[in-house]
Design a protein around this nucleic acid. Structure first.
Lengths: 389, 389
DNA sequence: ATACTAAGTAATTATTCATAACTAATCGTT
DNA sequence: AACGATTAGTTATGAATAATTACTTAGTAT
């Protein structure tokens, strides 16, 4: 432990404590929450105020007590720093901007007629980013994170495969770093399901969960203590290819009996003999009658079995349904629960809650921007230095 | 981060760096390995030397270089502190002693004719511990950890159920703490499979793995970055009750198609119509001909399928087979690999290594003692104070 | 002998948080 | 209105720790 890191660590603690609090907090409350002493917190808060990362509010009188000096609540300043998120899909490219309150302040989008090449996608992203930055001229920007519906290399610099975009081994991080207008930004790339998980981590304040995300395929993430489990090759949480039955239906991946072969968009479309309009969520809302019944049954029970397996291995209290599973949640939850009751150990103890993603719209885009700005919370001193220079 | 903790942290870093090195290290090497400066390391090493936690060796000349002052290697002193491990099973109670080199220095054992009650087990453990401590009078002891073949409460103080011992909701930690002779020791209780994992963590230097441990049931552990994943209710890594087939054979736990219902001792014994001598490893070595073939086939393929599921969720590079699986490893490995090839994503990238537990004998007992002494490595300053007082 | 190299030590400095005492601001009671 | 009680926040001082810099030590190579 370098002594230099202690202040960095403590500044981060203060900032993160404020970030995960709904209301502004006083220095005294912060001291109690962080375990640091009042003078220490005072110093740290002053430093963050000077950097423009925090703002002071009007003094408020003590809560229920008899007297006492009014406290001066501080909270995170919106405009101090922003992060950019981007997402690429077969029909549009979008970029958004998030402030340090973790609220989206701007979105820009370009529709495309067919899936862009990696190079085209980067150009579109750079243009949209420039547009957003021009419209908000006085902000300092930490970085940009791009959400991709596909699998990444373990180092996160290449997109190994994104079937929906037709990408194979695309050096996306490198393209982004050299794109005009993005030179000064920290660049990262991440899988869309993982970024939905990032949004959930923020909204759930670090409690562990298993995310299942239905889009073109079925993605997922396992989150323990606020950290996404990546594993040795970056495939941690790839719930879509859990084997439910070795003699089950064939999957796109060439294996047999994967969850995707039961509960994915293409599997259900195939099963119900419908072509699908191309828009996944529309497809599911368009299903009616017996076809809908059958799809619900198939999705609910296969998902329940897969989740039983996941929960027996990682033992987490919450399952979060995202993507089109979110829209079907009310219908599939009883079926999922029935399977969990039958197969999951965790049900005997604390039980398992089935919930849906908390973000209203574009959770992976929101997650991308969150990922872009998170470093500022983790190492404020470094960013204070960078923005001064 | 309290400033007080910095030294504690750095002492721990130095001690753990030395512990995970085969050879003694010089102060200069330690400085490089830990990222601390030479003067700082010098101070920390001197402190640990004064406490008797380290010893200096004779100076050795520089390795391949042209000249230079000879370095003075230091290494961990064996006798500084010992930890006690204990294990309880249906036919014996054992206690061992491990030094800070993490080597077993003494073992004592009492056979029993039938499974002891919790109270009797504690008496036997305390007697054996007293015996070992009396035979090694000049050592300071950190604590004792007891290995139990059963499921613990989330706080680790009660044995919720241990079918082999006939225990139900036994307050083992409390009984141990009040046992005569153990008053001054830190007491803990842990599941046997988890303690086998603890041994593997030490021997594998923190690389992640999945452990499958076959004894009376099938236990397991998932280890990521040197940490055993426990989960919300303490059931993380309970691979034995993964569901391989919802319509599969009935399991002891009341569910259907659990791995245990295919690959456990009792399932195989049932299948092969043999009574079993009572000793599990003897049972498997006694199997011959078709019965053995069938058992291998059944164990290998079910284990392979279960491991495929685990690895798709946690994506780790190594599977470690323990307990009776260890003895069958050569035979079942091809079958396991065949299933992994068919169902596990990880095989496509780095591949998965199938290995066996590294400890020669009694891995759970060794793990118990390791667990007992580990706190000394993590917070040396605290123990230096405790031993001074 | 001399130069060179690397290990380890010593003295000083800088950074940081902890402690304790103090000031500030408000409420309630007398 | 005066006073005490209460809580927030600041100031001054102190203690702990690692970083920096320069130095000494003990060898090898020429």
């Amino acid at each position: 432990m370098q002594l230099t890191n202690v202040r960095e660590h403590n500044l981060g603690t203060v900032l993160n404590t404020l970030a995960s609090s709904d209301a502004p907090l006083s220095r005294a409350t912060l001291a109690q929450a962080t375990g640091l002493t009042k003078p220490t917190v005072s110093r740290l808060v002053d430093e963050l105020l000077a950097a423009g990362f925090l703002i002071e509010h009007a003094p408020t009188r003590a809560v229920g007590a008899a007297g006492g000096r009014p406290s001066v609540p501080v909270s995170i300043a919106q405009a101090a720093v922003v992060g950019l998120g981007a997402s690429v899909s077969a029909d549009h490219v979008a970029v958004n901007m998030i402030d340090m309150r973790r609220q989206v302040v701007a979105v820009a989008e370009t529709p495309v007629t067919r899936a862009p090449t990696p190079r085209d996608a980067v150009v579109l992203i750079a243009d949209l980013a420039a547009e957003l930055l021009a419209a908000n001229p006085h902000t300092r920007t930490s970085g940009i994170c791009v959400s991709v519906p596909g699998r990444l290399s373990p180092d996160g610099r290449r997109v190994q495969s994104a079937p929906n975009l037709g990408w194979e081994d695309a050096p996306l991080a490198e393209l982004l770093e050299t794109a005009p207008g993005l030179e000064d930004l920290d660049v990262s790339v991440e899988n869309d399901a993982r970024l939905v998980a990032e949004t959930e981590i923020v909204n759930r304040r670090g409690e562990g969960f298993v995310l299942v995300y239905g889009e073109s395929g079925i993605g997922g993430a396992v989150v323990v203590d606020g950290d996404i489990q990546r594993g040795a090759n970056g495939w941690g949480g790839e719930i879509g290819h859990l084997c439910l039955d070795p003699r089950g239906p064939e999957c796109r991946c060439g294996r047999r009996g994967c969850l995707e072969a039961y509960a994915s968009y293409w599997a259900i479309a195939q099963q119900s003999m419908q072509t699908g309009s191309g828009y996944i969520s529309e497809f599911f809302t368009s299903l009616e009658g017996d076809a809908r019944e059958a799809a619900i049954e198939r999705i609910g029970s296969s998902l329940g079995l897969a989740l039983s397996q996941v929960l027996n291995i990682v033992d987490l209290p919450t399952v979060v349904l995202g993507g089109y599973f979110r829209h079907l949640a009310a219908d599939i939850a009883p079926l999922v629960n029935a399977q969990l009751d039958r197969h999951a150990l965790a049900v005997e103890a604390g039980g398992v809650r089935i919930e849906t993603t908390t973000a209203a719209a574009r959770p992976s885009l929101a997650g991308a921007a969150l990922r872009a700005i998170q470093p500022v919370f983790d190492a404020p001193a470094e960013w204070i230095r960078r923005f001064e220079a």
